[in-house]
Amino acid sequence: MNLKSILAAGALALGTAGFAAADGHEPTKVGFIYVGPIGDLGWTYEHHQGLLAVEEAYGDKVETMYQETVPEGADAERAITQMALQGADLIFTTSFGYMDPTINVAAKFPDVKFEHATGYKRADNVSTYSARFYEGRAVIGHIAGKMTKTNKIGYIASFPIPEVVRGINSAYIHAKKANPDVEFSVVWVYTWFDPGKEGDAAQALIDQGADVIMQHTDSTAPQAVAKEAGIYSFGQASDMAAFAPAPRISSIIDDWAPYYVARVGAVMDGTWESTDTWDGIGPGMVEIGEISDVVPAEVKAEALALKAALADGSYHAFTGPINKQDGSVWLAEGETAADFGDDGLAGMNFYVEGLTGDVPN
C-alpha cells in the first residue's frame, strides 16, 4: 500500500523517511497520535504543524509518523501500541481522552518516551503538556463582549473537562467586564470534530439570538454558518483566516512547534525527563490571531493591552472577586488562581456566577 492509500485509509502515515541519517546514526523515530484529521484547520492541524517543524529542524536525523482521527479509548491504546512496536522513540498523544491509554502503553514500553497533551497523569517515561488556552479566551472574550449587538454570545463546547470549562469561564468573565449586559448560551456537542454537529449547534445558538459565536471544537463549520447568518465568530486553535475579515474577526492559536522541537531535541541529546509544562501567551504557546479591521480600533487596542498584561504576568485571567455559579466565593478581591498553585484551575468543574445551565457530569 502506498503512502497516499495509507493516508486515505486513516492508517499510519510516515513523514521523513530514510533509514539512516547523514552522519550514519539511526534517525530518532517520533510519532504523533491525532484525534482529528490533519486537514481540520483547527486543533489537529496545529499539532501537525508541530510535526512539520520537527522535520524542518532535524532533517534526516528524525523519522516521523502519525495516525489521524484516532477515537479516544480502546482504539487509542491500540494505535499507540502499534506505534511503539514500530520502533518509535518518542510518541506525542494529542488529546485529553488519550490519557489512560498513554499511561497503559507506557507501562509496557519503559524504553519509549511519551508526551500526553492536556492530561495530568505522568510516569517516569510520560510527560504532560498543555497550553493556557484560557488566556487567549480572555482576549477574544473581551472582543466578543464589545462586538455583540444583541448582548447574546453563543459558545459551542466539546466535552465538560476542566480545559473546556476554564475557557468558557474566562471568555464569559472578560466579555462581561467589557459589556455588563452580555449573556452566554453554551451548547455541548460531545465531540472534538464533527462539522455537522458543530454547524447545527451554531445554527441553534443563532436561532436563540446570538450574534457572536465562540467555540471549543475543531472544525470551521461554525464559521461557515456564521458567515451565512452575517454574524461574527472566532478562529479556534488555528487562525482559520480563510473566514476573515468576517465572520472570523480574530482567533486563538495554539503554537506547539517550539515545544515539539525542544522535546525531540531532548530525546536526541539524552536530556529528556518527565516534566509537566503549562505555558500561555507569554512563552508563545498561545497566540492571538490578527484582529480584523471589522473590530473598532479602540476595541483592538484594549484587546492587545489585555494580551500584553497576560503575557508579562501583570494580570491574571482569573483575578478576584469571582464567585462560583451558586454565589459562593471562589476568589476574593485581589486573589488570583495562581495564588493557590493553579490547583483550582487544573480541576475546574464549575461555572462562575452569571453563567446559566449546568456543567454536565
Score class of each variant (00 low, 15 high):
M1P: 10
L7A: 12
A11D: 13
L14M: 15
F19W: 15
D23V: 10
G24V: 08
T28N: 03
T28I: 14
T28E: 04
V30W: 12
V35C: 01
E46G: 08
H47S: 03
E55N: 10
D60K: 00
K61A: 04
K61S: 01
A74W: 12
I80G: 06
L85G: 06
L90M: 00
S95M: 09
G97I: 15
D100V: 13
D100G: 01
V105N: 04
A107H: 13
V112G: 04
E115P: 08
H116M: 13
Y120P: 11
A123W: 08
D124Y: 11
D124K: 13
V126F: 06
S130M: 13
G136F: 14
G136L: 15
R137E: 09
H142E: 11
T148H: 00
N151K: 05
V165Y: 02
G167P: 02
A171N: 01
A178T: 11
N179V: 10
P180K: 08
S185G: 06
W192P: 00
D194S: 08
G199L: 01
D200C: 11
A204C: 12
Q208H: 05
G209W: 07
A210D: 10
A210T: 06
A210Q: 08
M214R: 04
M214H: 08
H216W: 14
D218M: 02
G230V: 07
S233F: 03
F234L: 06
G235S: 05
G235T: 09
Q236L: 05
Q236K: 08
S238D: 08
D239N: 12
M240F: 03
M240V: 11
I249H: 05
A257K: 05
V261G: 03
V261W: 09
A262W: 08
T275L: 15
T277H: 13
M285K: 11
M285F: 09
I291M: 11
P296H: 01
S314R: 14
H316M: 09
I322A: 04
G327R: 08
W330Q: 02
E333C: 12
G334E: 04
A338H: 04
E353T: 06
G357H: 00
P360K: 00
N361P: 15
